[in-house]
Design a protein around this nucleic acid. Sequence first.
DNA 1: TTATTATTTAGACTATAGTCTATGAAATAA
DNA 2: TTATTTCATAGACTATAGTCTAAATAATAA
Lengths: 205, 205
Amino acid sequence: MKKGSRQLQAEQTKQRIFETALKLFEKKGFDQVTVDEIVQKSNSSKGAFYNHFDSKYGIFLEKFTEIDTFYEEFIQTIPEEASLKEKILKLFQGQMQYLEHEMGKDLMRSVYTNGLIESENHYFTNTDRSVYKILNDFIKVAVERGELMPEVNNEQLSMMIARCMRGNLYDWIAFGKGFDLQEESKQFMDIFVEGILKKYTPKEK
Amino acid sequence: MKKGSRQLQAEQTKQRIFETALKLFEKKGFDQVTVDEIVQKSNSSKGAFYNHFDSKYGIFLEKFTEIDTFYEEFIQTIPEEASLKEKILKLFQGQMQYLEHEMGKDLMRSVYTNGLIESENHYFTNTDRSVYKILNDFIKVAVERGELMPEVNNEQLSMMIARCMRGNLYDWIAFGKGFDLQEESKQFMDIFVEGILKKYTPKEK
DNA sequence: TTATTATTTAGACTATAGTCTATGAAATAA
DNA sequence: TTATTTCATAGACTATAGTCTAAATAATAA
């Protein structure tokens, strides 16, 4: 054994809990699954569970970071020469499709509920996330190309765009059926990007 | 006694629970107050509590509807002849100040957490709310005045503006200190309204 | 090798939101 | 007035997330 058998066992336990939990979440929905059930079905214990994860949300947040992998791959499909607006709308569209179909509303609900809990470490708050980096880069390129004036506050703008994403996702979760995430977020973002352009397009010299 | 003493007593019990709860929320923060404590301090019981309120959130939602009174009064202070942009920005500003200072972050957290719970009846979802009516009216007037083209979908636009509010409030709650609600939401909304105007200002004839 | 320390796991226990049933009293019907 | 029904209330009970302690065993030091 490379790793001490202790660590190996711990890792296996964690993995077992993790996979069992995700399977159950998918089958019954996040709220319908109890920690006791996860623990029981994965042949582990409360002690093991809370040793490896902070909370029931925590277990899912671990999966949620997969989204960063998605982002990394997805931007490859966006042509470098596309306009800022095209890039942002494409990113939005890709993200919303991914979240709606790969993550699902129930899991997103838990992420957004968790985001509201008072604490220092939040996924949303973490500005190292891929989305922020990607948006930052979009804006930087747009400035270089003269699509946006150099005075724009890149960080702030990226944050606002991410906020648009959160706003649309929040409403999707809150409003239930009848809310078309793809359509709504497309139209919303179309307006927002137009606003950015109107405010920050360099003046004709 | 006008009312039967039965109803009167019930009303008094409800009021006692309500006031005790709000006082406790204010003093200790929503999450630090237990239903048992509310019940005990208000000399009532679990049965009485859940007879009058759906949940711990529910008790606060009742207070939260006061915000509609605020809206009604606040729009009186906005001059009729102001532009759409001015009106929306003023409304936003007034709302955010009210929520930040009168409601407070803790209570708003509970409202937003509650908004995510799966159910039919949500405060946000209820399109009868004053905000929606006010926004609808702003847009209607703007169309009449030729500020916006008549093709705009009033309901959809109002909903999107309300979504901007939610997005900013969500981030305010999620990001904790360092997030300046007033400033952030002003700048955000400035962009969004510019986007609306760019897309929906009637073309020069 | 033996002793010590650190860490994983088991599972009993706690805290708390919310449910359920019984009681008593008021409203209503006879 | 008496009987019946309805409804507010009390408080025991349930469900479940999360804590805490102890036991077991691996890693490390002597």
